[in-house]
Design a protein around this nucleic acid. Structure first.
Lengths: 230, 230
DNA sequence: CCAAAAGTGTTCGAACTACACCCATGT
DNA sequence: ACATGGGTGTAGTTCGAACACTTTTGG
């Protein structure tokens, strides 16, 4: 065999699909959009796009994310490749799925309308095209596992957030209620948050203190064998 | 846009690469083979193959595994898609990597020679072609994580195995020594092993009892909210 | 009889769980 | 003054970590 061996092989369309997750009103949301081309035009789907010849998979996902969110530097991770023969009803397409964690406040209504996009609670997601429901399910499983041992949840919150907010987030991710005092005790012990003087008074008269995730502190602790865990 | 939209897109070669892991002499081994076509002919690489038009990714991986091991029903799981533009020096190829856990005793020397294959301790793996070292690394990380919460390690052992053997296996997976008594205590508590009357006398005069993994028992416990953990 | 691996329980400390009251403040 | 969510500590339990000796038997 020789390099000519490559030429005998079949080629495939390759796409990326992005599970864009946000957090709002104590619920995880996913960004869906109404497909504007055939097949399945008009159906709900994840954000996706074909991979181009000059870009790698990660770059393609980054491009799709930037295009449809207008945001740079989004947290994003591949969850796997989906390659069932009949997964796309149009043509044979192999797709790499990526989940992304964003701050929903960064989205303008115009941007969403421009793309026919809609935030949907993950508990109320309709039937999506192809295997997109499975992709979403896999993304949520991954998030559940990973958020427990890595400080990735903060990507779903604004830079400044309160502890009740953070707890709600983790309750949404784990789909289970958490004990307030135990939750706070853990965070306190890890010592990776910066407490601000400012308070958020949107949800109570008393107000809750704002905190920020201190990445420098976290990275420093990591080197000393520390492990994040929530 | 319309279905014609698909036609404007670029197509890619898509391959699967298999990280075939075995266990022998208290060490994890990976099956490498000497590549017999250009580019990088003669270099060490993972087992791989191009995806065909009539098969899904999982099916392609299954085919490659069956072809080069002669074994059916191998435990196998995708670890992700690798799609850097320049990862394959021949042509642009996107590859889905799968790791597989096999019992090394099932391999005949002839079969290995037929494929120019060689078992190599994972601690002594040479530089492989392309991004195959990274794939191996990712596979080992995945195994480390997954073996702790799912009974997949048994796939690396013969049907009948001893507790010292099992412990060695986990020590190899975790790359850390384990306490004999604590290890056995956990296994005992889970109650998913079947103790046989037979003993293995290869490694000691006294002999160690053989055990078997009882999948029925495990599945039954699962339904009752039980979780595997080692 | 001895070398070499198999097998067996207990104690201690750390981590997790459960749980109830006071605080601050806007209305 | 009161309703609403924010904030705080302790006791009990469970789980994991450390640890040493006896048993078996082939050579």
């Amino acid at each position: 065999m020789s390099a000519a061996f490559y030429q005998e092989q079949v080629k495939f369309y390759v796409a990326v699909d992005c599970i864009i997750l946000g957090f709002n009103n104590n619920e995880l949301n996913v960004l869906l959009y109404k497909r504007n081309f055939e097949p399945m035009k008009g159906e709900w789907s994840l954000m996706g796009g074909f991979v181009r010849s000059e870009e790698g998979l990660d770059e393609a996902a980054t491009r799709v994310l930037t295009d449809c969110t207008g945001i740079d530097n989004i947290f994003m991770e591949q969850i796997g490749a989906y390659g069932e023969v009949t997964r796309d009803y149009g043509e044979r397409v192999i797709s790499a799925a990526y989940y992304a964690l964003v701050n929903m406040n960064d989205f303008s209504q115009e941007l969403l309308e421009q793309y026919n996009a809609k935030w949907t609670k993950v508990t109320e997601v309709p039937t999506l095209i192809f295997d997109h429901n499975k992709m979403l399910h896999d993304a949520l499983s991954r998030l559940k596992r990973k958020a427990a041992t890595r400080p990735i949840g903060f990507n779903l919150l604004p830079e400044k957030f309160t502890l009740p907010q953070l707890q709600c987030l983790y309750e949404a991710i784990y789909q289970t209620p958490l004990d307030k005092r135990n939750f706070r005790k853990k965070l306190n012990a890890m010592d990776i948050l910066e407490k601000l003087d400012e308070k958020d008074k949107k949800n109570s008269k008393r107000g809750a203190f704002y905190y920020m995730f201190n990445k420098e502190k976290y990275d420093h602790l990591l080197e000393q064998g520390f492990y994040f865990s929530l």
